[in-house]
Design a protein around this nucleic acid. Structure first.
Ligand SMILES: [Mn+2]
Ligand SMILES: [Mn+2]
Ligand SMILES: [Mn+2]
Ligand SMILES: [Mn+2]
Lengths: 150, 150
DNA sequence: GCAGATTGTTAGCACTGTCTAACTTTATGC
DNA sequence: GCATAAAGTTAGACAGTGCTAACAATCTGC
């Protein structure tokens, strides 16, 4: 979602398009999707590991309170990434599943890359969780290549 | 600020400290400082390049509106990173200057690293602007080493 | 030195993301 | 099958980050 298609760069929309300004705008854009990305990735993981994704487990994994999760899930449902019924566990829509898959892929590549660079797995996991939302497809390709050939 | 001291890990404060949950908590923490980091880094840059940092220039660089900058600057002042007088340009406190320097260092290392990996400078700038807030000191050391020896 | 342009502030709105407190529903164990 | 425990929801507070509209101050060029 953030930076999927390397051909779709430099949209000819508004201002003077100073590359620096564009960088900041791109980062703000990416920030708006971070939370949704973490949620769908985690939901997919819970469904795979436990068979279902319950708000209480999502909250425990993320380290936030259950009402926070509940409200966020409402937004994800509104945005078409999940479906939910009251007092039931959560399901991904096709869109949500696709996003989750993409996020998992990015997460894996960044994590493998950091570890192949020589980072300890704990710190790698920590850094990957933040970095994954800010790597372009181009960077991802370089990360993957490096991890493979090392 | 985010992850300066590698020895200060695993603070024995609250919960069960699942490494995964800790990762998410750390990322949320980092996210809270991103904007302040971008601001002080940019302010230092403007002072260096133009002699002063004016809200209108900050806004132009970031690609946001001036009132947004004004409000954010109030928060930075409240948090002791800058000083300001009404209708005047902005100054960094010692704390702010120290943070700016640290941010510039991180930014440079990440940028050089990405370029030395083979990324084009434009995309590197874009990705560095996001990644810089999510690299631990340990990762930074590996990035710097890689960039130097390549 | 003043008119007009530029810059900055203030007020007010919207939305996100976090929390606590209070309540409701569902699940569990006898 | 019922009482209690666990999970989930709702309401409401609050801070952050963005916007526009309206107003105030400062700067610039004549
Ligand atoms: Mn993440
Ligand atoms: Mn992830
Ligand atoms: Mn940045
Ligand atoms: Mn930066």
């Amino acid at each position: 979602m953030t930076e999927l298609d390397p051909t779709a760069r430099t949209a000819p929309h508004d201002g003077p398009a100073d590359p620096r300004t564009e960088a900041f705008q791109g980062v703000r854009e990416a920030r708006r999707n971070e939370l949704a990305e973490d949620y769908v990735e985690l939901i997919a993981e819970l469904i795979h590991e436990q068979g279902e994704a319950r708000p209480v487990d999502i909250a425990a994994r993320l380290g936030v309170k259950v009402p926070t999760v509940s409200k966020t899930l409402d937004r994800l449902a509104r945005d078409g990434l999940i479906t939910r019924a009251k007092y039931r566990s959560v399901f991904l829509t096709d869109t949500g599943r696709a996003l989750a898959k993409e996020c998992r892929r990015r997460h894996e590549i960044v994590l493998r890359f950091l570890i192949s660079l020589g980072l300890d797995p704990e710190t790698a996991e920590r850094d990957a969780e933040g970095i994954e939302h800010h790597v372009s497809e181009r960077t991802l390709a370089l990360f993957a290549a490096f991890a493979n050939r090392s």
